[in-house]
Simulated scan of single mutants.
Amino acid sequence: MFRRHEGPSGHRRTAVVTLAFGLAAAAVSLGCAGLWDRLPDPLATHFGAGGAADGFTARGGFLGVALGVLLGLGALFGTLAHLGREAPGAQRALTAAGCAVAALLGAAFGVTLWANAGADDAGTVTLAGRQLALVCAASAALGGLGWLLAGPGAPPPVTRRTPAPTAPRLELADGERASWTHTAGSRPIAYVGLALAVAGVVAGVTVGWGSGIGLLAGGLPLALLTGARVTVDRRGLTVTPLLLPRPRLTVPLDRIEEATEREVNALRDFAGWGYRVHSGASGVILRSGGALSARLSHGSEFVVTVDDARTAAALLNALVVRERPAPGA
């Protein structure tokens, strides 16, 4: 039976990322209300390379799309943060990323409203480069603030037990160094992410970036994070995206009690793919099949689907024993 551990930091991170999207939605609503009589109908919502307007959206439709995107993504990021509360490092990174996305979208919608304010004809509206720089600066600033507000969180209490004698284990000589690494991926998730990203570009070009940016915000990370490199070495177990240096998940040796290989059904055991938290276990689930399973010292399980998991488990157990010898040894 695995135990869940939830601390105040986990709840705080969920609240922070949800509040960021709520504040962005409130700011856009207030801005729209304050500028309503000065806004043309339709609004200029898409701008070409030179900053000139070349796409338009009805005034009421713009507000509906903006609120739908912000509140929808707020619910998504809040749910992911809540589910990821057993992995403080990943939850903190998710909180910062969510705050950055909230600021990016809120500022983009805001500068669009401001650019349209006072225009008699939306066709004459332009978007200056400094306004785009403001959007990027707001995203970076709120992302950093989200990282600080999330806090590192106190590590859960640990017990220090060694792997059972029946667990797979490599024999390492004194002072011998060893590491294991393998890549894992999921083509279906990559295709879904790519499809969402393409749909976002199409929607942005044909309807307006107010509707397309939400699809892009969901599709691009999905497409980029569908492959991972799994590494076992003296640091512990590390999972890193293939195409990006972050986010990186590391489970140090002093948090691991025992590693084994087991079969995973993505839908039955984890209710889906990606980074998952389900029934006292968390992990990176990119497919069904063989997986490396690490039983952690605070009672939960970390799982990552990867080929040759038995070798990885054997090395991980050997490194744990070397790091934490059995009593009386």
Rank of each mutant, 00 (worst) to 15 (best):
V303F: 06
G10L: 09
A52K: 08
V101R: 03
R234D: 15
Q91C: 06
H278V: 05
A138P: 09
L94D: 02
V304Q: 06
G74S: 03
R92G: 01
W114R: 15
V284R: 01
T14D: 05
A128M: 12
T250A: 15
R177H: 08
G55D: 01
V251N: 06
G22N: 04
G146E: 05
A97V: 14
H5S: 07
V111T: 13
W209T: 14
L39W: 06
N265P: 10
S9N: 07
T14P: 02
N265K: 09
T240K: 10
A96M: 00
G89N: 08
S279R: 13
D41H: 06
A184R: 10
A96R: 02
G50A: 13
G212Y: 08
E176H: 07
G51S: 02
L43D: 03
G61C: 08
P188A: 07
L80F: 15
R262L: 14
C99S: 15
P8C: 03
P42E: 04
L76Q: 03
V239G: 12
P88C: 01
L286D: 04
G153Y: 01
V111L: 09
R262Y: 04
T226W: 03
S297N: 10
G218N: 05
G153V: 07
A119L: 04
A24K: 02
L170Q: 14
G68R: 05
R262D: 11
R177T: 15
V69P: 05
T240H: 08
S297P: 01
A75R: 05
G98N: 06
L243K: 09
G84W: 07
L244E: 15
L94G: 11
R287Q: 14
S139K: 00
T79Y: 11
L105A: 12
A122L: 09
L35G: 07
A291Q: 03
G72D: 02
A318C: 13
L253W: 14
T112D: 10
A294T: 00
G78Y: 05
V101Y: 00
R187Q: 10
R177I: 14
N265Q: 15
G280P: 02
G175L: 12
H5W: 13
D121M: 14
